[in-house]
């Protein structure tokens, strides 16, 4: 019964929180409207959603989000220093990261994280060979970068979505 009423609890919760943020959670009416939207919108948009894997480890997901936020700060600083430093000594490179995950939705999250952490921009996810192509601003040792991305981001993401 609950399952049929709320087919995607995580999506509903996210919509409700987003609505609360948009309206500043100002009044009871706004929150009720948000609750209604959070119930109706997953139904209306159901056909557009890919079969997203379940969020298996929410606590790990929160810790992971905090780590990504921290990494973004550190990497911002690192890239900022490179940008004002001598540009000629940079070694930009295309890097191929072989993926162990096999889910398009999770691959999208991983490539978004790679793009958000400055210094790397994901260019393409090859779904035939499951390789993430990315461009790095300064990667003197591409293999080390591949190891970092696999260990620091891909492994926890696979644990979170258990895929």
């Amino acid at each position: 019964m609950m399952r049929r009423l709320i087919p995607r609890p995580a999506l509903s919760l996210a919509l409700f929180l987003l609505w609360a943020a948009l309206t500043n959670a100002a009044s009871l009416g706004a929150l009720l409207l948000g609750g209604l939207l959070a119930l109706v919108m997953p139904f209306v948009t159901r056909r557009f959603w890919p079969d997203a894997p379940r969020l298996a480890r929410p606590v790990v997901a929160l810790k992971f989000a905090a780590r990504v936020a921290w990494d973004m700060l550190v990497a911002n600083w690192a890239v900022a220093r490179r940008v004002v430093g001598p540009v000629a000594s940079l070694s930009p490179a295309f890097v191929e990261v072989p993926l162990d995950l096999r889910d398009p939705f999770v691959a999208t999250i991983l490539s978004s994280i790679v793009s958000l952490t400055p210094g790397t921009v994901s260019v393409d996810v090859d779904r035939d060979r499951w390789v993430l192509h990315l461009h790095a601003l300064d990667a003197p040792d591409p293999d080390a970068l591949v190891r970092v991305i696999k260990l620091r981001y891909e492994t926890p993401i696979r644990e979170i979505f258990s895929c």
Binding site: M72, N76, V79, V84, F94, L116, V121, H135, L137
Partner: peptide, 26 residues
């Protein structure tokens, strides 16, 4: 500002792409 400096100083399209992504995040 640093994002824009990167856009101006970096040598090619792909390296320039890194400037704006930084400016939007931090």
């Amino acid at each position: 500002l640093l994002g824009s400096v990167g856009l101006a100083r970096l040598p090619d399209f792909f390296t320039r792409l890194h400037g704006p992504t930084k400016a939007t995040t931090l």
